[in-house]
C-alpha cells in the first residue's frame, strides 16, 4: 500500500459524565486503529452506540480525541487547533446522516454548496457560480435548485446537496456518516450509486460509516467491524463476507436476509442475547464476552485479557482469543449460501 490518506492509531475518545452522584466516563471509542489508502473505500460497521460516529467526528476533528493519533496525508492533526486545521479542511469533508439538519435552513442550496469554496478562498463571484453549477450537475441536481431553500427539496435531493458540498473542495478523504440511513429505501440506492460513480470518477478515499451490511458489501473495498468502541475484525470485503472469523461478525452476517426464501428458511441464525453493555463500564477482557455464544470456550482468558487485533493473513485482522489459539469460531458459515 502506498502512503495512506488517513491513518488512525490507537484512537480513544472518552466523554466525562458529570451529574449528581453518577460520575463516570463513557468509553465511546477505545483504541481504534485503521488506515485508508488512496482511493480506497473503508466501511465501518457496527450497531448503534458502538462508537462509529464518534470515530467520524474525531477524524473530522469536530471533537477533540482523548488519546491516539490521526494522520491525514502524513500530517498529525490530532492536536492541531481549529485555526491551524482550517487550511487542511480542503483535504477532507463529510456527509452527514440527517439531510434535514445538515443544511442551513436560511441559506439557498447554491450558497450551501458554495460555502466551502468561499471559505477556503478557492472561488469568488462569477467563478463561484460556475463551480457551484458544475457541482449541481455532477450530483444530478437541476441547476435551478441552486436558488431553492433546503426545506423545498426532497430528502434525496438534500443529500445530493450535502454530497455536493462535501465534494466542492475536491477532498482526498470523504467521511460519510450513515449518509443514506435517513432516506427512503428507494432513494438510498440512487445515492449509493451516485457516491460510487463519483468515487470512481474523482478517486477520493472514503470512510463509509453504516450499520447496513448490504450497503458495505456493495460499496466498500475493505470493512472494519466495530463493537463497543473497538474494532473486532477488519478484512477486504469479499474476505469478510466469505470468511468471517470473529463471533460477532458471524452473528451479524447470520442475521442478514437472503433473497432466496428457501435458503433463508434453512439458514442457521445466531441470535445474540441481551443488549450492548453500557460504555460507561465496558466488560473486562474481551468486550464481546458478555454476549458471545462461545464464551464458555474462551473463558477464563476472555475475562482477564483484552484480545489484540492480530493479522491472520491476507490483511484479515481479528481480535478474538479463540482465533488466536487456532480454534475457529463456527457460529455461521457463509458458504452454505450460494453467494
Amino acid at each position: 500500500m502506498t502512503e495512506p490518506v488517513l491513518e488512525v492509531e490507537g484512537l480513544v475518545k472518552h466523554f466525562p459524565v458529570r451529574g449528581l452522584g453518577a460520575k463516570g466516563v463513557v468509553h465511546a471509542v477505545d483504541g481504534v486503529s485503521f488506515r485508508i489508502g488512496r482511493g480506497e473505500l473503508l466501511g465501518l460497521v457496527g450497531e448503534s452506540g458502538s462508537g462509529k460516529s464518534t470515530v467520524a467526528n474525531c477524524v473530522m476533528r469536530l471533537v477533540a480525541p482523548t488519546a491516539g493519533a490521526i494522520r491525514l496525508n502524513g500530517t498529525d492533526i490530532t492536536r492541531l487547533s481549529r485555526r491551524a486545521l482550517r487550511p487542511l479542511r480542503r483535504s477532507m469533508h463529510m456527509v452527514f446522516q440527517d439531510p434535514y439538519s445538515s443544511l442551513d435552513p436560511r441559506m439557498t442550496c447554491g450558497q450551501i454548496v458554495g460555502e466551502p469554496l468561499d471559505v477556503q478562498g478557492l472561488a469568488r463571484g462569477r467563478d463561484l457560480d460556475v463551480r457551484v453549477s458544475q457541482l449541481f450537475d455532477r450530483v444530478g441536481l437541476r441547476d435551478e435548485l441552486r436558488f431553492r431553500y433546503p426545506h423545498e427539496l426532497s430528502g434525496g435531493q438534500r443529500q445530493r446537496v450535502g454530497l455536493a458540498r462535501a465534494l466542492a473542495v475536491s477532498p482526498e478523504l470523504l467521511v460519510a456518516d450513515e449518509p443514506v440511513s435517513a432516506l427512503d429505501v428507494s432513494v438510498q440506492a440512487s445515492i449509493l450509486n451516485l457516491l460510487r460513480d463519483l468515487q470512481e470518477e474523482l478517486g477520493f478515499s472514503c470512510l463509509f460509516i453504516t450499520h447496513d451490511l448490504a450497503t458495505v458489501e456493495y460499496l466498500c473495498d475493505r470493512v472494519a467491524v466495530m463493537y463497543l468502541g473497538q474494532i473486532v475484525e477488519v478484512a477486504p470485503t469479499r474476505e469478510l463476507f466469505g470468511n468471517p472469523k470473529h463471533p460477532y461478525t458471524q452473528s451479524l452476517l447470520s442475521a442478514g436476509v437472503v433473497p432466496d426464501p428457501e435458503v433463508q428458511r434453512s439458514r442457521t441464525r445466531v441470535v445474540l442475547e441481551g443488549d450492548l453493555p453500557s460504555p460507561l463500564e465496558p466488560p473486562s477482557g474481551c468486550r464481546f464476552r458478555t454476549r458471545c455464544p462461545l464464551e464458555p470456550r474462551s473463558a477464563p482468558q476472555s475475562h482477564d485479557e483484552e484480545p489484540p487485533l492480530v493479522d491472520v493473513g491476507d490483511g484479515h485482522l481479528v481480535a478474538c482469543h479463540l482465533v488466536r489459539r487456532g480454534e475457529t469460531p463456527d457460529l455461521y458459515r457463509p458458504l452454505e449460501v450460494a453467494r
Binding site: R86, M92, F96, R165
Partner: peptide
C-alpha cells in the same frame, strides 16, 4: 449539523 458542517468547511 449545519454548524458542524460549517466547521468542516473550515
Amino acid at each position: 449539523d449545519y454548524v458542524r458542517a460549517a466547521v468542516a468547511n473550515g
